[in-house]
């Protein structure tokens, strides 16, 4: 099949980028979006031109590296899917495809379709852990955890940290990402000791990173490849209020 690719090209964080069009032919519907870009890059490199830069690694939908806005939607048209798991069979022969980076103030463009998502790492550093040093942990079965509790925690913990939630939100809010981590740990008994501090510090860091605020529209959850539920945002709000109460009492 044939497609016209309209790709955001930007040299660096301070350059103004632009859309550049590339005709692409001899494509197979079984190719993923990334394999299509591989092919384009092969052609560009062979012609002595610089390839299109994008993040990717596992190509299985789990590492959270790939990050493109495809025809206006983070990770493209398919529900519950990542860019790497989006195949050309989702598009019509001859179609125009627009590929752009995940855009947000907190995610500056590094080059082309690659953005800097280290703000997410700093949110985790602010409290997304249980302070359990290596060694001396009690036997794993010493702390029974109800099956449903473990399942709930796993639902939240399934977040792959790709940032599609931020890219989809009109305010570029990182609430769904932060909520997922806070909720994963707040759901489990291991997370109780640091529960208030964690919620407070992670939310504070989120604000510091210049993510926008949440207006509960749900665009984030709608594009989330792991279908992380909006309910976790409600939980984060409760956790945050709880942590403020905990401070004042």
């Amino acid at each position: 099949m044939k497609l016209t690719l309209n790709i955001w090209r930007q040299q660096g964080p301070n350059d103004t980028g632009q859309i550049v069009s590339y005709p692409a032919k001899d494509l197979s519907p079984d190719m993923s979006i990334l394999e299509m870009l591989d092919k384009l890059n092969e052609e560009l490199i062979a012609a002595g031109e610089e390839p299109v830069v994008f993040d990717h690694d596992c190509r299985e939908g789990i590492c959270g590296s790939c990050s493109m806005v495809i025809n206006g939607v983070p990770h493209g048209p398919q529900k519950a899917s990542t860019t790497c798991q989006t195949f050309l069979r989702s598009f019509q022969d001859g179609e125009n495809i627009y590929l752009e980076p995940f855009r947000a103030t907190a995610f500056p463009v590094v080059r082309d379709l690659m953005v800097d998502r280290s703000a997410f790492d700093r949110i985790i550093q602010a409290g997304g852990y249980v302070s359990a040093n290596t060694g001396g942990a009690a036997d794993g079965n010493a702390l029974p955890i109800a099956q449903q509790t473990a399942e709930d925690a796993m639902d939240a913990a399934a977040c792959i940290g790709c940032g599609a939630c931020v890219a989809a939100c009109k305010n570029a809010s990182a609430m769904l990402f932060t909520a997922a981590k806070v909720s994963h740990l707040a759901t489990l008994p291991q997370g109780q000791v640091e529960r208030s501090e964690r919620a407070r510090n992670m939310v504070a860091q989120m604000d510091e990173e210049m993510f926008g605020s949440c207006t509960n529209q749900g665009a984030c959850s709608a594009v989330c490849p792991k279908e992380i539920s909006l309910d976790w945002i409600a939980k984060l709000n409760r956790e945050h209020i709880r942590s403020r109460v905990a401070v004042s009492t």
Partner: peptide
């Protein structure tokens, strides 16, 4: 065996039986 204990302490959500055991 210590690995499992350590990971549980960190909050790794391992699958559980109905009784709450790993």
């Amino acid at each position: 065996t210590s690995i499992i204990d350590q990971c549980v302490a960190q909050g790794v959500p391992f699958a559980r039986e109905y009784g709450g055991q790993l």
